[in-house]
Simulated scan of single mutants.
Amino acid sequence: MSPKIKGAGKTASKSKPKNSSRNSKLNSKKRPFNVTRAFLAVFVLVMLAWLAALMMIKEEPQAKKANLAQNNNTQKIHELLESKKKKSSVLDEQNSSQKISQKISKDNKIANIYEEISDEKLKEFSKKLQEQKEEFIAKTVIEQNISEQNASKEQSTFEKTAEQAPNYSYSANSHSKRKSHKAPNGGPKLAIIMDDISTNAHVRELKKLSIKVTPSIFPPEKEHPKTAELAKEFSVYMVHLPLQALNYTNEKANTLHTGDSKEKISQRIKDIKKDFKGVK
């Protein structure tokens, strides 16, 4: 048997690093306490605290002064506003009192003027008014008398003319040819035309008259399609030609307008002559 070797079968111990001895030496040495540095640090902190305190002490009175100045300014502004309001109210009161006094003075002046007018002046004024009234009445009476005299002269002249005029009767039923009578003293003749004839009732009423009246008959239209038949009742008649009006909304059919051409107007008249063959 081989002899046992001491320490055989045990794991070998780990080898220590080379720098471990140096690090242990450095750690074993303690750094000495530096009093000077500590003192300087404390001194600096104290000085900073002292400076901060001084700054706070200086800032407080300045802030107080600023606040006081601001308060003073606002108070002054309020005082100025109040004084202005008081002045404006005083001025308004003065103006109103001045206006009232002016009105009172005017009223007093008017009252004095009325008091100055005596009863004699009023009588004189009423006398003048009465004279003017009488003068106006006299002028009116004179003008009325003159107009009455002129009217009576015209009436007498008309009566004389009527006496000299030929006496004849006329019926619308007979349109026979007659000799034309000249008006006395070469005066004008009178022609009467009855417009807008469109019904049998119109024709009957027209024939009842005892004087010569020329009818003007409407052309045939939607409401009165047989107006051309009415024309046969008369030997002399006219035809009403519907024309454009200034203010009229119910226009008849085929009404002529100011903007129509000459050709359109001529054609319309030709069509009317076809319906009314005896039209003059």
Rank of each mutant, 00 (worst) to 15 (best):
K133H: 07
E134L: 10
F136T: 02
I137R: 01
I137D: 01
V141K: 12
V141Y: 03
Q144V: 01
N145D: 07
N145T: 02
S147E: 04
S147I: 00
E148C: 01
Q149D: 06
N150G: 00
S152A: 10
E154Y: 07
S156G: 00
T157V: 07
F158V: 05
E159I: 10
K160S: 07
K160C: 03
E163A: 15
A165S: 08
N167M: 09
N167I: 15
S171M: 08
S171D: 11
A172Q: 02
N173Q: 14
N173S: 14
S174K: 15
H175N: 15
H175K: 12
H175D: 14
R178E: 07
H181I: 14
H181S: 14
A183L: 04
A183G: 06
N185H: 13
N185T: 11
G186S: 12
G187K: 13
P188W: 02
K189D: 12
L190M: 05
L190S: 01
A191D: 08
I192T: 13
I193W: 04
I193C: 06
I193P: 04
D195R: 08
A201K: 12
H202S: 06
H202A: 02
R204T: 08
K207E: 12
L209S: 09
V213I: 15
V213Y: 02
V213Q: 07
P215I: 03
I217K: 01
I217Q: 06
I217S: 03
P219N: 05
P219W: 00
P219K: 00
